[in-house]
Nucleic acid binder design. Structure first.
Length: 337
RNA sequence: GGGUGCGUCGCAUAGCGGCAAUUGCACGAGACUGUAAAUCUCGCGACCUUAGGUCUACGUAGGUUCGAGUCCUACCGCACCCA
């Protein structure tokens, strides 16, 4: 289902395509998150117009509201959100981190799974790897993710190791549940989704390598790189990609989770052989009054991005632009420009 | 013509003798990374290097008081009621 079309002679970049139950998408690709079954403030028609090929949804959010059974009854996720193309679901692993950090602990982690308090109404929910996979099957997404714990960007190695071990155990359980449901699907003439595994290991080289070895040894369809540090700390993300280079199989798509807050971040990981990435940055910063502006150009055979703005981000709401009638980019013919 | 009420930082509000003065909006700046985020943080009279200090400020002009946005008088403006 993953086909490499062309490889760069200069760096590790590659062009490819991935076949899913709802069509083919080309890689490298940015996938906008539509966490609650909608990309906030952007409808499906507009997404198509800007050549978006695949969306993300979130298992945990949809489980809490409106529930996977309702979505399933209404014809599954594509019908529910009016998006006919490929959809990837995140397993809820990111929430294991985001719900338990700082503030009130909304999540309790154990070997079995994670107990959540719903941020909507406080109701208690237990999510296990098996449960997460089951929900993703009911949603009917095209690519599902193994349930993991998004490792914190912390120098506590003991915790990172423990957390990684848990993620590995959960990866096996996720895969087992997937194989079981997959058989059922095939026997009843339905097509099962693809499943991706997630490498953790925090900020530690030996743990990252250990995790990469373990995850790539399992029969996942794609390999994701997870953890708070991925995308958030770009120098470290690139370092991780560099030392994991020989551990990642060439014939499986690679996905850096949560990466893409700045155009340059995407270019940097694509150069290092990453095929897929997603980030709430672009849509969120747009809702908060900013847009990306800069120039992508070839230099010394490589792709580069330069912008006069910090992180390539132009704050369109700044008073200095109040009477500025210029297009964002003179050379761009998109609707916004 | 008579009566009553009201004028507070762009707008709207609080304040009822110790106040550079509440809150919301607007405005200004910043944060945002597998979305508890169309959210959040900070600033919003002027000047001084800060803890803080110094001026100028609640329609206008006087007055009472140690002290007035707050009380009194007059004026100006606005709203409503009665002729």
């Amino acid at each position: 289902m993953f086909k490499i079309i062309k490889k760069s002679k200069i760096d590790k970049a590659r062009l490819g395509e991935i076949q899913t139950n709802h069509g083919i998408f080309k890689t490298p690709i940015f996938m906008p998150p539509g966490t609650q079954a909608t990309v906030k403030a952007v409808g499906p028609d507009d997404l198509s117009k800007i050549d978006i090929e695949i969306l993300l949804v979130n298992t945990l959010h949809l489980h809490l509201q409106p529930g996977e059974d309702l979505i399933n009854d209404l014809g599954a996720i594509h019908q529910f959100m009016g998006w006919p193309g490929p959809i990837l679901s995140d397993s809820g692993g990111f929430q294991v981190w985001s719900f338990s950090r700082n503030r009130q602990n909304l999540a309790k982690i154990s070997e079995d799974g994670v107990e959540f308090s719903s941020p909507i109404n406080g109701s208690k929910h237990l999510i296990t790897p098996e449960k997460s996979i089951e929900i993703q099957y009911k949603l009917g997404t095209d690519i599902i993710m193994a349930f993991d714990e998004c490792s914190p960007d912390s120098d506590n190695k003991e915790y990172a190791k423990k957390s990684m071990g848990r993620t590995h155990q959960w990866a096996e359980r996720s895969l087992k549940k997937h194989q079981e449901l997959s058989k059922k699907y095939i026997n009843s003439g339905q097509k099962p989704p693809l499943i991706f595994g997630i490498i953790q290991g925090g900020i530690f080289e030996d743990l990252r390598k250990e995790s990469a070895k373990f995850i790539t040894s399992l029969p996942f369809d794609g390999i994701a790189l997870g953890g708070e540090t991925i995308g958030y700390n770009m120098p470290r993300t690139l370092e991780i990609l560099d030392y994991l280079r020989d551990f990642l199989p060439d014939n499986k798509p690679r996905y850096t989770m949560g990466l893409g807050a700045s155009p340059n971040d995407i270019i940097e990981v694509v150069k290092r052989g990453v095929d897929m990435f997603d980030c709430v940055g672009p849509t969120r910063t747009a809702r908060h009054g900013s847009l990306y502006s800069g120039e992508i150009f070839l230099k010394d055979g490589g792709v580069n991005f330069e912008s006069e703005f910090d992180k390539g981000c132009l704050r369109i709401s700044n008073s200095r632009f109040e009477n500025d009638n210029n297009p964002i980019d003179k050379n761009c013919d998109c609707y916004t420009c």
